[in-house]
Design a protein around this nucleic acid. Sequence first.
DNA 1: GCCAACACCGACCAAATCAGTCGGGATTCA
DNA 2: TGAATCCCGACTGATTTGGTCGGTGTTGGC
Lengths: 174, 174
Amino acid sequence: MKISTRTEYGVRVLVTLARRGAEGPLSLTGIAKAEKLPHAYLEQLVGDLRRAGLLTATRGQAGGYQLSRAPEEIQLAEIVRALEGPLLEMPCAGPDNLESCDRPQPCSVHELFQRVYEALDGTLTATTLADVAATAGGPPYPPSVRRRAAEQHAVMVAANNKQTNRAVSVQEQA
Amino acid sequence: MKISTRTEYGVRVLVTLARRGAEGPLSLTGIAKAEKLPHAYLEQLVGDLRRAGLLTATRGQAGGYQLSRAPEEIQLAEIVRALEGPLLEMPCAGPDNLESCDRPQPCSVHELFQRVYEALDGTLTATTLADVAATAGGPPYPPSVRRRAAEQHAVMVAANNKQTNRAVSVQEQA
DNA sequence: GCCAACACCGACCAAATCAGTCGGGATTCA
DNA sequence: TGAATCCCGACTGATTTGGTCGGTGTTGGC
């Protein structure tokens, strides 16, 4: 499973807005420059976020974007849904056509995906934009925190690689 | 986020093998017919599952595939990794190139994805093939179970559609 | 010894999705 | 008027997805 750049960029935009607080709108050009993201591409994402009611735009000179709610009130699940559509799309019986699965109900795969969906939805609903913004990478972080985060990340990467490497080595043995 | 047909098909194949028990190998042609899946495509997936050590093949006439371990010993996380690679791929600092993220560590998006990864890995590691096979859609299920599963599924679908629909209605108001 | 049934493998292919770019509007303020 | 901004649809090249096709290797049965 993959998380697209849409989500990454979208979250970054919202995080920068959340950190700025309510000091008036922030232009997309400014955000794009600060975060080193492609401006034209961001326009699309930000349009989706606006249509989902997560941020409001003010036009004209000195215009820009603001969060339409407090960061504590914005669940990550909303952001991901706005940017990527359904949290989890199942191949058999997609969300839009429930009847498309002609297999016997309850279907084993349905139940499995239900569990995965709940795990995903649970964490993304429990996490708010404020949580993410609070974690975030402004300069003033004690080295201990940085080290711990790096370690966590390494563990995650290792876990991801484990199965892949095993498959490769099995292949090489033959 | 989307679950590919690879995973769906792969799980179905393994579930049918798990239900069959240790009664000798089952031919892919048989599985494909029973599950109504494209045989030629399955060959690819099954090759990955074999290389990952999840099932063993016997060639020649009356050959086929068997689970190489008991269904209780096979975690869903292994299956998904064998079929789709890393459980969760992050855009910034992908699993194969840790240093690709030049943003300040700890980066807010890293931490967020870490949480999502843990949720995903947790449920997929906790679930075994035996669990999924036990749930599964043989005919003899009491109506109460079928009803409850259908309701769960409907809730999931509704939750998925909610945000999308809201966005649409907001758009229509303008 | 041959044939049928199976696993195995690489190449190929059409359609969809991703990650953007481009060009042109519409609004607002100075 | 003009600059800065949001807004929108069309386009594009690369990659991924979901397969198909043709051929090879292996095994048991007649």
